[in-house]
């Protein structure tokens, strides 16, 4: 059973990948991993490159299938859900920020934030209002009509943060959100992300190499040798 304030719980989760596209011995990435995330708290997962941090995040968000184990999100087992149900959860209860600030290249900053809300069933007008508000909060009021290739790396990441919060999710999954930014921009994004998460009472699962950034979260886990260790 999930504890009442647990929003995400991973139990005995295992995942392996084929060594090559043609098959071969599978490489075990995660082995019987257990992890929990309480509502409106933040956890950071650190570890070496290739240790499986991103895989863990993707499995937690139902973006990647798992070999064994259970992922409970808001008291629902993600592995048992059909595509429609999983899509609904992704739309309304999850937000994503990827390292490379993936934006829809054919759309403006405003549209990039507006579209997830519209997918969630929010009217175009309301979606626009929410998008405008969030873009203002991340300091991009003057970049509304700019497309991805007209924005800097830091600005793109700020659009991604606004987009991830537009549907007021329960959990925000951030995969190395400052990984591709310079130190100054990274610091701005770190502050902005943690402030917004706190302000909007959203749980955060953060993947990072940056120990200082990780230490600002409620709990820090270290992924080592296919297992999760509580670090702090």
């Amino acid at each position: 059973m999930m504890k009442s304030n647990e929003i995400l719980s991973l139990r005995e989760v295992s995942k392996s990948f084929s060594a090559t596209e043609r098959g071969g011995e599978p490489i075990q990435i995660l082995d019987s991993v257990n992890l929990t995330l309480q509502s409106a708290t933040s956890i950071a997962i650190t570890g070496k490159s290739g240790s499986g941090k991103s895989t863990l995040l993707q499995i937690s968000a139902g973006l990647l299938s798992l070999d064994k184990g259970v992922v409970l999100f808001d008291q629902k087992n993600l592995t048992d859900l059909k595509d429609d149900q999983l899509s609904k959860i992704r739309s309304k209860s999850m937000g994503f920020i990827f390292q490379s600030s993936l934006l829809l290249d054919d759309f403006t900053a405003l549209e990039n934030v507006q579209i997830p809300a519209m997918i969630a069933g929010v009217s175009e007008k309301l979606a626009k209002e929410r998008a405008l508000e969030l873009l203002e909060q991340v300091g991009l009021s003057n970049r509304l009509t700019h497309k991805s290739d007209q924005l800097s790396g830091g600005e793109r990441q700020r659009v991604a943060i606004a987009r991830s919060l537009v549907n007021r999710p329960l959990v925000l999954f951030a995969d190395e959100p400052t990984g591709s930014l310079d130190e100054r921009n990274a610091a701005v994004i770190e502050d902005m992300l943690l402030d917004l998460v706190q302000e909007k009472q959203v749980a955060l699962m953060l993947i990072t190499h940056n120990n200082a950034f990780a230490s600002r979260c409620s709990h820090v886990y270290h992924l080592h040798d296919r297992h999760v260790e509580v670090f702090a």
Binding site: S87, R90, S91, L102, D105, D106, P116, I119, N167
Partner: peptide, 16 residues
């Protein structure tokens, strides 16, 4: 393809 992945992560269903 990448945009399909993004739209799916935003909650767009397969049939959509």
């Amino acid at each position: 393809q990448r945009e399909i992945a993004m739209l799916r992560s935003m909650g767009l269903r397969r049939n959509q």
